[in-house]
Amino acid sequence: MATLLAALTLALVGCSDDDPEPEADPTPSTSTSTSVTPTPEPTEPAAPLDPEATVKAWVAARNQALSRGDVTEVRRLSSPECSSCADLIDPIAETHANGGRYETAGWRVLRARVTDHAPDAAEVTAALVFAGGTTYLSATADPVVYEAERRITIFELTKSSGGWAVSLIGFVR
């Protein structure tokens, strides 16, 4: 386990910027435009995400799952053995399967930095804002109303051939 000095050093040289992230919108706008779609140019394969970007992608994918019920992407960004990920994903799938829905902006990454790094493992500490909102756990359930929260959150990641994946999510308060 790294020492405090190492943690602070990594934090200071972390690859994150200090600007607040734009709020993740779980309900992206849809376009009804009928304009001609340009032929897509051949593109290079997307570069693998680094640990910090993986965390941001995980949060964005969970927000998408809240609004659409499709947990495929957020599961893809989670390692198979990440039970703490599943604990945050499975209820979303269950709620949508039961006809429920989420009326919330989801989570927002206010700040994220790599606080520990090894060739095949990394730790990202993030400041997350949980938006308030209303959840209906099923089609007939009474609404569950909740306030916004701020949580210091630790993401542990492991690297495999498919890139970085979240292997543990824990909260500090």
Binding site: F130, Y146, F171
Partner: peptide
């Protein structure tokens, strides 16, 4: 230590890890 605690997140009561 990480311990599993029960908490409400986004309206779901979930088991989460808390330091």
């Amino acid at each position: 230590s990480w311990v599993a605690v029960t908490h409400m997140i986004t309206g779901n009561v979930v088991t989460q890890l808390e330091l």
